[in-house]
Simulated assay, not measured.
Amino acid sequence: MKRMVTGCLAVALLVSSGWATAEAKGKPSSKPKWADKNKDGIPDNWELKYKLGLGKNVANQDKDRDGLTNRVEYSLRLNPTKADTDKDKVLDGDEDTDRDGLTNSAEIALGTKPKDADSDNDRIKDGAEKQGKTKLSNVIQKLELQIKTAANRTMKIDYHWSERHSHLHIKDRTGHVTADDVQALITSLQAAPTLSNDEIIVKIQTLFSLDTPFRLELEWKYGNGRARKLSVKQSDKGNNTGQPSDDEDDDDQDDGD
């Protein structure tokens, strides 16, 4: 009898030990359960679903040209092959997913999180945070300026934010444009987003030493998604022709046509 009890006890311990081992093996690991052959942090089945391939640089590509990489599109649950996933006539990069006053593409450029309205958890929304003395919502994400002078000399300026850094390219045949001048213009537009078109024209004339006549084309976009355009042809008499505009008064401009 004792031998039988002892044998049963040994079997019970062996079985319980086996179950404990099985349970330990069955515990979830910290590693992702999905396959990621190219080790880019995106599941292979998601990349294959949208026919992105499994190349080494897939995560950093922007196939639909909406301003967001595939990695960001995956994180935000967007379609990486559609520039406007929800078909609301706003590019995915220009959407404000977390409603913090910054577009998705601006958040990536400025180093904040497009899924978190308060990236640094300081109880201040990212759009209201300041870079220097400027709210991030007023930071210029992109600016393009082209000027043609009376002597048919041109200047082209291309400025944009990318991965927390500003990038500036100047092509100047007038000899009057410096990086400091461009930065001064950008600083003014950021500090006072409501500057009138006339005030902006005067500022550009002063900074770049422009004599009349000249032709000017300016486009710029803020971190909050607001875009403005300015197209001016100024004569010797100081008269402006053209249609300065921004997104907020496009309707008024159409009514005047």
Rank of each mutant, 00 (worst) to 15 (best):
T6I: 10
L9C: 08
L9W: 01
L9V: 01
V11E: 07
L13S: 13
S16F: 03
G18A: 06
A22M: 04
S29A: 12
S30I: 12
P32Q: 11
A35K: 15
D36K: 09
K39P: 01
G41P: 07
G41M: 03
D44G: 08
K49L: 12
Q61G: 12
D64Q: 02
D66P: 00
N70E: 11
N70M: 01
V72E: 06
T81W: 02
D86N: 15
D88Y: 06
D88F: 06
K89F: 08
L91E: 09
G93R: 12
D94K: 15
R99C: 04
L102S: 02
T103N: 11
N104T: 03
L110D: 01
G111V: 09
R123Y: 12
R123N: 15
Q131N: 04
L136T: 05
S137N: 04
S137H: 03
N138P: 05
K142H: 13
L143C: 10
I147P: 05
T154M: 13
I157T: 11
I157A: 08
Y159D: 09
W161A: 08
E163V: 01
R173M: 02
H176A: 10
T178D: 05
T178I: 07
D180C: 00
D180Y: 00
L185M: 10
I186G: 04
I186S: 08
Q190W: 01
A191T: 15
N197I: 00
E199W: 02
I201K: 12
V202K: 14
I204K: 02
F208V: 06
F208L: 14
D211G: 08
P213K: 06
P213I: 06
K221M: 09
G223Q: 04
N224E: 05
N224T: 03
A227H: 09
R228F: 02
K229N: 09
G238V: 13
N239P: 01
G242F: 05
G242A: 11
S245N: 09
D246W: 07
D250M: 08
D250F: 01
D251P: 00
D251E: 14
D254M: 08
D254F: 07
